[in-house]
Design a binder for these strands. Structure first.
Lengths: 150, 150
DNA sequence: ATCGCTGCAAAGGTTTTGCAACGAG
DNA sequence: CTCGTTGCAAAACCTTTGCAGCGAT
């Protein structure tokens, strides 16, 4: 955790950015709550108790900054809310329509199959940067968590 | 095209909805501009010259209606804008980062592979309703269209 | 004629912006 | 000390809503 803060500091320095309290806190929170793909508002509420003077505008600016320097990404939604993800490992998302969750889905075998498919396919005039499989569905039992085994 | 308007009329009737001028025009435009996955604003601008009295609020309400009765879907974006798609055939999307386009990508073989994969996989407590492959990339030559051959 | 739908304008919610004060390097 | 960053509040956006009047059935 001290190590993680050090890591954050380095990443920001590499991008030529100051390691301010606010950035440290926001990025740390984003890492902590990564699995829920929070909105700016979510992070604000999470951070405010221990940082009462932080402003929502700063959260937005910081998230933009993190995305710009490759420490986070925006998550595609059809909901109108912007959600953020600090998990930069190659992974896919399960979208639960009934619970509105977005669940990480790591699956190297799937990624391999899909990537191989597109290498064979070769779409002209397109340089593919990344492929993302969006699994839409519903939790059958909304009380029970979805647990993924590779 | 007359046939298409008839089809629209039937679909609306089936859903217990009145076939108003506005709905006909909006849906017709959405079908015509399907390939560009327009925003509500896009449709408004497209429609206004020939329907000066139509309001943007009506466009939004109509798009909601079309989505609710299964004639259109919302397209996932990481941009904050809501985009709509009247193409209800099973298909995927190519997201061009440099041109901001969303291009339809039909590929039955890919769909087959992915679907078979998840049938084998069976994620516990999840009922999959649909799987969507998002191909992110850049046009190499922004002047030249991307043309897909199956 | 009825009741659902439209147009308008106002409100709502999220995200961005401008600028003086602040603080990390 | 300097210049990038923050906090605040206002503005800019996109989308939704309320309601009187209109029009499809």
């Amino acid at each position: 955790m001290r190590q993680q803060l050090q890591h954050i500091r380095e990443q920001l320095a590499n991008a030529g950015l100051k390691a301010t309290q606010q950035r440290m806190v926001v990025y740390h929170t984003l890492l902590e709550t990564m699995h829920m793909h929070p909105t700016a508002e979510n992070i604000y509420e999470h951070v405010k108790p221990e940082n009462p003077s932080i402003s929502l505008g700063t959260i937005y600016k910081t998230l933009d900054t993190l995305v710009a320097c490759g420490l986070a990404t925006r998550v595609s939604t059809a909901s109108g809310y912007m959600r953020y993800d600090a998990n930069m490992d190659r992974h896919n998302h399960i979208y639960c329509a009934n619970t509105r969750e977005i669940i990480d889905y790591h699956d190297a075998a799937l990624d391999e199959i899909v990537q191989a498919y597109f290498e064979r396919k070769n779409i002209p005039n397109l340089k593919i940067t990344n492929i993302h499989v969006q699994i839409n569905g519903d939790r059958i039992d909304p009380e029970q968590r979805i647990h993924i085994q590779e």
